[in-house]
Simulated scan of single mutants.
Amino acid sequence: MARVTTTNRRDALRAGAGLVAGGALAAGCGTGPKTTTATRTAPESAVTSSAKPSPTAPAAPGPRAYPGQPAQITHGPRTRPQLALTFHGQGDPALAQALLTTAERHGAHLTVLAVGSWLDEHPGLARRILDGGHDLGNHTQRHISVNDLPEADARKEITDCADRLRRLTGSIGTWFRPSRAPTASALVATLARRAGYPHVLSYDVDSLDYTSPGAAAVTRKVLSEVREGSVVSLHFGYEDTVAALPDVLTELDRRKLRAVTTTELLS
């Protein structure tokens, strides 16, 4: 396994220096720490006219059903040398840019589950993600514990984020993942399906990057558990993740495992 070095960390962060840093660091789902800024909803005026889909830009792909797959997907086929690196999308946009750029330099494509309030603050990132060949999906509007909400509030968390995605890209995105939990409750899965998402996207490998364990620990955790078909949970907004990604991708290349979008993984 390649060693995570200070140079790797510095180079990865430099790749994102072209964007202005801003926004709260992403809080991890499940047992990760919560942040108050993660639940702030930006005003509607934050989505400016420039954030509307370009007349010349094709509409983003929408959700599709995968016959034979369960309602909540944790992994793809174990018979092909592919896996999906999925990112909970919020936090400093410069770190997001660094992760996207690193992936693209390695020929990898990611799946980004974006928080709606993050898209309100940084609407240009929706098209940036799609233009890089990555999947873009729904991770609720405010990144609060959606499984614990009353039905009407849970529905609004899902549909508000879907509306942001539709406004920015022309579709509601390809996937839905619940916030603050690895899997959706029966109610949330039903609400997501009614909103247009046939499947909930879960995962079988949790990087635990939101605990800020250090880049080497993130790298070890991911590489010790991934296999063909894995869906890996990672996060934008953490320097450890930015520093770890080059070594993760280098080792995946050595193992001849391709990092593809979840859509490609299941196609």
Rank of each mutant, 00 (worst) to 15 (best):
T211N: 04
Y210W: 14
V232Q: 05
R166V: 06
P63M: 08
G107Y: 13
E121M: 10
E251C: 05
G137I: 14
H109K: 13
T36W: 08
R180D: 02
P198T: 11
A195T: 04
H75L: 11
P246W: 02
Y197T: 03
G237F: 02
A96T: 14
A181R: 05
G229V: 10
A181T: 15
C29N: 12
L266G: 04
T36G: 10
T111V: 05
S230W: 11
V248W: 03
A38Q: 14
L85G: 07
H106M: 10
V231Y: 01
E151P: 00
D131F: 03
E121Y: 03
V112L: 11
S145F: 04
R3S: 15
P81G: 11
L249F: 03
D204N: 15
A27S: 11
G28T: 00
G137T: 14
K52T: 13
H199P: 12
G196N: 07
V232F: 12
P123G: 02
P70N: 12
H139R: 08
V47C: 07
F87E: 01
G196Q: 07
M1H: 12
A21I: 00
W118D: 12
D92M: 06
L168T: 10
S54N: 09
H88R: 10
A108E: 09
T219H: 00
Q72D: 08
A2I: 09
P70E: 07
D204Y: 07
L85Y: 03
D163H: 09
L201A: 14
K52D: 15
P58N: 10
Q141M: 15
D247Y: 01
V226Q: 00
C161N: 13
S117M: 01
R220F: 04
V232D: 03
T101L: 08
D153T: 01
G89Y: 01
D253M: 06
Q141K: 05
R255T: 14
T190E: 14
I172K: 07
T102K: 12
G32N: 04
D163L: 08
E228I: 00
K221G: 01
T37M: 12
H106Y: 15
A51T: 11
A21Q: 10
A2Y: 01
V231S: 02
A2P: 13
K256N: 14
W175R: 03
A216P: 09
P61Q: 07
R10S: 13
L95I: 14
V47S: 02
I129S: 02
R142H: 06
Q97M: 09
G23D: 07
G18Y: 04
R164W: 04
Q90E: 15
E121I: 13
D209M: 06
I73D: 00
A17Y: 01
A154D: 00
A27F: 04
T101W: 09
A189F: 12
L257M: 07
P61A: 10
P198W: 07
T183D: 00
T140G: 07
V260T: 04
A162Q: 02
P178H: 03
A162L: 03
A244K: 05
